[in-house]
Design a protein around this nucleic acid. Structure first.
Lengths: 142, 142
DNA sequence: CCTTGCCTTGACGTCGGCGTCAAGGATTAC
DNA sequence: GTAATCCTTGACGCCGACGTCAAGGCAAGG
């Protein structure tokens, strides 16, 4: 199979495959005409890469999985090195999720505070001074 | 105050301030010698930008806050446009967190599955065939 | 034979938010 | 006075995973 077919069957592009090859991740045999030639096993490797990429793994992080498959193991994660990557990734994800939740809480708090302040200003304008139209934008106090 | 002092007081770099200026976010007045000149109000704006940046806001997303302050409002989030940014960000964060949690769950499952497979192989090797040393790497089945 | 479509390598572009260097002018400390 | 430190603009570098274009070779269908 040639590069275009492999790309299509894996749902990616020829550019991506050449890039992987340039990174030494997915080398290709060559036909007489110089065309890259791939087989079903390459498709397997490529799908492993793509799956991990979709999970947000760096390209380099997929290498142990690919090497594991290429070494003849039944799965990309049949090797200790792959399991280590999984574990590092889990820790990384946990840290990231915690961080994002913290940010989410802080932003939520800011929004709530700002909305309270806005509503208090609106209430102030309604009761004591009189219901004058509030200037939305532009030098207000100034 | 000149650019170096402002940078230091905001805990950032002169390069960053020039970058903000190039993006039209934090323009500077110029002294007779051509040096940029800033005041306390600029420091305020800059701190607003930095806070949001630390939350992971894009630079463009800080613009409404800066413009709000520059318009004379008491806070960067005293304007509707800023509140909209907050809300968009909250949605974005929620989506991202969900996505990461989903990925985390899937990776965790993969790890558990792979570890089970490994342990089953180890158990197989221990009981029936005999406790032969297992080949760690290299063509095993092949 | 000619067109269409695949393939090749090479190389520059993208995105965001700056870092880093270069060459030179201004200011300040001693 | 002079050296050290600040400032100026300009421009290239970085990171990751490719996209996109260019110029050309090879193949297959009508």
């Amino acid at each position: 199979m040639r590069i275009g077919e492999l790309a299509e069957r894996a749902g990616t592009t020829t550019r991506t495959l050449r890039y992987y090859e340039s990174r030494g991740l997915l080398p290709a045999r060559r036909g007489e005409n110089g065309y890259r030639t791939y087989d079903e096993h390459d498709l397997r490797l490529l799908r492993q890469i793509r799956t991990l990429q979709d999970f947000g793994f760096d390209l380099e992080e997929t290498r142990p999985f690919v090497e594991c498959l290429r070494a003849g193991h039944p799965e990309g994660d049949s090797c200790p090195a792959s399991l280590d990557v999984y574990r590092r990734k889990l820790g990384e994800l946990d840290g990231l999720i915690d961080e994002l939740r913290s940010v989410r809480a802080q932003v939520g708090e800011q929004l709530a505070r700002a909305e309270r302040a806005r509503d208090e200003l609106a209430a102030d304008a309604e009761v004591p001074g009189g219901p004058e139209p509030v200037c939305e934008l532009g030098g207000q106090t100034r």
